[in-house]
Amino acid sequence: MMRLEATGLALPGRLDETGLTLAAGEMTCLIGPNGSGKTSLLHALAGIGHPAGEVRIDGADPRRAIAARRARLIAYLPATRELRWPLAARDLVLLGGADEGEALAAMSDLDLEAVADRRVDRLSTGERSRVLIARALAPRPRLLLLDEPTANLDPLWQIRLMDMLKLSLREHDQTALVAIHDLDAAARFGDRLIVMDKGQIAADGTPQAIFAGPWIADIFGIEKRDGVWQPAA
């Protein structure tokens, strides 16, 4: 069973310590308003921008691993889907550090075989998003850090992707931290929710516990009335 432990992460709101432990096979959803520090937390774990603190995957610091091995430890999917160079979809997936077979498997999982040789700037927004997701998933990294993975995907693909991720986490002993704005999706797919507020972790627990508590109304300013989310009274 893999285990991720992070301590002393310097996040905008709390410069001293933010710590986190994630277990294998679990999908943890990261929720919080805009600017609450979700992306900062993902960056700190991914080692983007020389962050402070310690990250350990099974006891070893993945941020010290050489590039070739690191792709199999951590994958980070940014929220932006912007691409500057018109690479072929397959070439883009291969840049993520997977071998040919893994790249093809990930592309076939995401139904991208037909567009493998097409330039990414000529794909639809949804296809391009799936190519970028395939890039992150292909090397089967131990820790997946995904920023809004379902953005730009149609409803069917949103469900297929999350189901596929959950299956992959269990089968391949991986763990995922998924920043997501859709609270219903977080409740449905998350094994655990972490609520971010003002740059720190405000709450951490099962979806049932989080939704039963005061955090959603307090932090997001919304509540569920008649089965739909509405601004809190």
């Binding site: 983007i48 590039a67 792709a71 951590i74 980070y76 999917l77 940014p78 850090l145």
Partner: peptide, 8 residues
Amino acid sequence: EVAQSLGH
């Protein structure tokens, strides 16, 4: 960002 996360 991705390049950094890949260890470069």
